[in-house]
């Protein structure tokens, strides 16, 4: 305000009626500044209710020994009852490295082979063949996502079942003389965990990639064909670079999805068949917090596992956002808030 007055003085102009109707200007200005937050408010409310408040509670719970036996007795909100014991327990757990290793393997393999890899392959193929065939294949691949998860895992158990009941054993392995017709979920649990999760995960990327490929203006692919490129070269040099953004988004989003998912593993192997053989971090959190091994669900201890998982997830997300130079790619709005 001061600079402005000086400038006017300098140029020898009559003072402008800047301050006339200040109240009015102030009001419309404030309204302008608040408008974005009005648009954001429903999200802010939902996020507060279902992310932030719960997160704070989980965080506090993670320092307590709240469980089913002392529920209603333990005053968990009082700092007196807080300690780091749960975290000590996690980091001295002798299965910690196995669980961590399982989690990394689960996320990395499923992501690379299915959620991004297979998704891309299906999207590319189904957009380059006859339209109706493409639609049929995508419908087929969407089935795992929309089938009730209980039924879906039951179906996979049937596929993996021992001879003569199991489909894979009965029609493929036994006739070919491979294996002894054992229950494949016991002999190769990880293969099935990748398959079961991957078949659901692939459809997410498939839809986004297929959509992105279809939205590439035809001029580009035609130009590339005119230049003499083969279909593969067109894909490699024209289409893939143009779907860079959905690729980055799906990679990021699905990493986090996988990191936090556990329903399928729970229903399929529940961490078994061997001790902690297929137990991943989120499943451990669930087991500790919500299922009772000894007639006792350890909410506090489970919460501590969750908190560590949240930290891992947030760190991953931040790394992705950094690596993909996300901030630089977000465009500035071309209308100012007055």
């Amino acid at each position: 305000m001061k600079r402005r007055t000086e400038k006017i003085g300098e140029r020898g102009k009559p003072p402008l009626p800047v301050l006339l109707g200040t109240r009015n200007i102030g009001f419309s200005r404030m309204r302008g500044q608040l408008a974005p937050y009005a648009f954001l408010s429903p999200t802010l409310i939902l996020v507060t209710l279902f992310f932030f408040i719960p997160l704070v509670m989980v965080f506090i719970l993670s320092f307590t020994k709240l469980d089913m036996t002392n529920f209603g007795i333990l005053e968990w909100w009082k700092p007196v009852n807080w300690s780091l014991d749960n975290y000590v327990k996690i980091f001295t757990n002798r299965f910690l490295s196995r669980i961590l290793g399982n989690t990394i393997m689960y996320v990395a393999v499923t992501l690379a082979l299915f959620n991004v890899g297979m998704a891309l392959v299906i999207a590319l193929i189904t957009t380059h063949i006859k339209r109706r065939t493409g639609f049929a294949f995508r419908t087929l691949w969407f089935l795992p996502r929309i089938t009730p998860v209980v039924v879906y895992t039951m179906m996979w158990r049937a596929l993996a079942g021992p001879a003569p009941m199991g489909v894979i054993n009965k029609y493929f392995l036994v006739p070919l003389g491979i294996g002894g017709g054992e229950y494949l979920l016991h002999t190769h649990p990880w293969v099935f965990i990748f398959l079961v999760n991957g078949f659901i995960g692939a459809s997410f990327g498939m839809i986004l990639f297929a959509s992105a490929i279809e939205s590439i203006p035809k001029d580009y692919t035609i130009a590339s064909k005119v230049d003499g490129a083969t279909t593969w070269q067109t894909i490699r040099y024209v289409e893939l670079p143009m779907i860079k953004w959905p690729l980055l988004f799906v990679t990021t989003y699905q990493t986090l999805s996988l990191l936090t998912s556990f329903e399928q593993i729970m229903l399929l192997t529940d961490g078994g068949p061997g001790l902690y053989q297929t137990e991943v971090w989120s499943l451990t959190a669930y087991h500790r917090a919500l299922t009772s091994y000894f007639g006792n669900t350890q909410w506090g201890y489970g919460a501590a596992w969750s908190v560590v998982l949240v930290i891992i997830g947030v760190v991953m997300a931040v790394i992705y956002l950094r690596v993909f130079k996300f901030r630089e790619l977000v465009e500035e709005p071309k209308i100012d808030q007055l």
Binding site: L55, Y286, L290, G313, A317, F326
Partner: peptide, 25 residues
Amino acid sequence: KGFLSLTLILHAFPSVTLLIPIYFV
């Protein structure tokens, strides 16, 4: 931009983690 990043980061919050507190909410 921070808010935009945040929406993605929220996805890193596992539903399992939040089930109990959400019950209270």
